[in-house]
Write a protein that binds this DNA or RNA. Structure first.
Lengths: 334, 334
DNA sequence: CTGAAAGCGCTTACAG
DNA sequence: CTGAAAGCGCTTACAG
């Protein structure tokens, strides 16, 4: 590293004490306009950049937070990162993007190590890292600020940015019911995701509200992946009477259903309607384009970072979902 | 933050000087086995984690590098991150995942600010951040180590992990030629990506090698996106004689071609063969599954990090590509 | 093999 | 509004 200027050199050239430079850098009060201007001019001319390590060591804050994630979907991770990153950088924080293994017995200790080593000021948890009681407890014990994105368990506790999964799934189901479908298959996602159960609940509520009996045989377990969606679809399509619509718990599985339909020469949406959940990049890349529930992942992450870093925002926020009606859903066949 | 133990407390309890604790932490020579064991035991018991900020400030290295990216594909970003992250953490480095705006006039100064503030030991550049001469020059001037993933310009300079895009595109084209196709359309990617031109070159070389005249009308510009792939396909399908195969410069565009074919009721691969490039997550989620050239993104990033951090590895490495023949390519119609 | 001193580049109280 | 002192938690030479 070439020799960078330090706060002392800046102060010498500006003709003030280095403490005054520090004040200017931190936008503190009690600096005369003229002094401030002079210091800023020198800072710019020397291209001075304060050492993050020194600030962290000397100060009581590191201006550094981490986003913890453990999600197999590139789409999801990318958008969560982008949203959180944006709000953090707007507020002058650095965001460490930290993949973790939420299944590991060392998870809590690994996260604590990161917190200590990096002097983190807080952490942002994304699903399914949101659902680990031992982690939440330890964070609480330490008094370290944290915020959760779309948490399932302990919903009311602490800071969180969410959508209403139950209502969203209800709307998808009602869209199908509105098209005349009565035998609607449902493919659940991973057991460990609380959203899996909430979406199932929304599906059931919609059926009940329209006087359609719940049929256990029409619910099949998937694993949030394309492959598992296809397998689940094949099971559902063997049921008699055959379902005229399938609602998959996420877009990857819905794409799997669509491929299975193509394979069996089942016309979509003529003979089978398909709906997904997420509005991921996939939804518009398959054919026909997928009807799906849009989940504002990037906005959720942005809001989460905001909740944690600007205290005046409050504790919880619920964002809007939106049904994207495309071409995989249509009137039920007679 | 609860009061964490420091190196001094560890040393007091272990009954040695704090310098000795530092030696143990850094795995230095000249510590008796017994002393080492005793210190390690106290470190573990207190759950001591050295302050990264203090190490960075006092030492001449930060054990911190950054991955710079500016790519619209979640798939690409996710895998680049994963590969680089893995090698860095294996080697005891922290990796900062840093999105940048490669079009911004402030790019160089923003990157230099990051380097200074974080005391970076090096940077990993992914496309298209690899192609900015001003950035490379400034890094060279500073003598800061950097490595490039799949660089286009100045290929031979410095450290780099690449694949042979020309050869890979040639193989895709030869696969199509081998199936009897003669009128093969080609959809280029973004102009700013050097790989765009290399893949075009590979396409031309394959044609030439098999005595097929190059037809400018069969090459259309795309923008690496699903939508642009569909538009390009529509243009190509108006050509007479109509091409019997289309090779798209990436999978997103290939998915667009596939959707356009579905829309026009063109049977794939019966009437039209389609090949992509990347083997992204998309390739297996569309129907029929896409024939494509696998680019080992994650391995490239892993190798790049390795080149930079383990000096003995050498300067450059070229990884293998692999043609994934799936279901969108078949014999040319008569 | 082990230790005492100096210093990395800042912020935090404390003065004036 | 401005400054001098102390210290954050480590590593780097330098001794012995």
């Amino acid at each position: 590293m070439s020799s960078r200027p330090t706060i002392k050199e800046v102060s010498k050239i500006a003709g003030v004490s280095f403490k005054t430079v520090s004040r200017v850098l931190n936008n503190e009060k009690h600096v005369s306009e003229e002094t401030r201007r002079r210091v800023e001019e020198v800072v710019a001319r020397l291209n001075f950049r304060p050492s993050h390590a020194a600030r962290t060591l000397a100060g009581r804050r590191s201006f550094q937070v981490a986003l913890l994630y453990d999600n197999p979907s590139p789409y999801y991770v990318y958008h969560v990162q982008t949203g959180a990153q944006q709000r953090c950088s707007e507020l002058g924080y650095r965001l460490l993007l930290q993949p973790v293994d939420s299944q590991s017995p060392d998870l809590v200790s690994n996260v604590m190590a990161l917190i200590d080593e990096a002097h983190l000021d807080g952490v942002i948890l994304s699903p399914p890292v949101t659902e680990i009681p031992a982690l939440l407890d330890e964070l609480d014990r330490r008094g370290l600020p944290y915020v959760r994105i779309a948490p399932g368990a302990r919903k009311e506790a602490g800071m969180a940015a969410t959508i209403d999964d139950v209502a969203a799934a209800r709307e998808v189901t009602e869209h199908l019911i509105g098209l005349g479908h009565r035998a609607i298959g449902f493919i659940r996602g991973l057991d460990s995701h609380v959203s899996t159960w909430e979406r199932l609940q929304g599906y059931r509520e919609a059926l009940a509200a329209h006087g359609i009996a719940f049929d256990e045989d029409l619910v099949v377990a998937g694993e949030n992946s394309f492959t598992s969606g296809g397998e689940a679809a094949r099971k559902l399509l063997e049921r008699r009477p055959r379902p005229t619509a399938i609602f998959a718990g996420n877009d990857d599985m819905a794409a799997g259903v669509l491929a299975a339909a193509h394979e069996s020469d089942i016309d979509v949406p003529g003979q089978l309607s398909i709906a997904g959940f997420d509005d991921s990049d996939l939804a518009k890349a398959v054919w026909p384009p997928l009807t799906t529930m849009r989940q504002p992942v990037r906005e959720l992450a942005y809001a989460a970072a905001d909740l944690m870093l600007s205290p005046e925002t409050g504790q919880q926020v619920t964002l809007e979902h939106k049904l994207m009606v495309r071409a995989t859903t249509g009137p039920a066949p007679r």
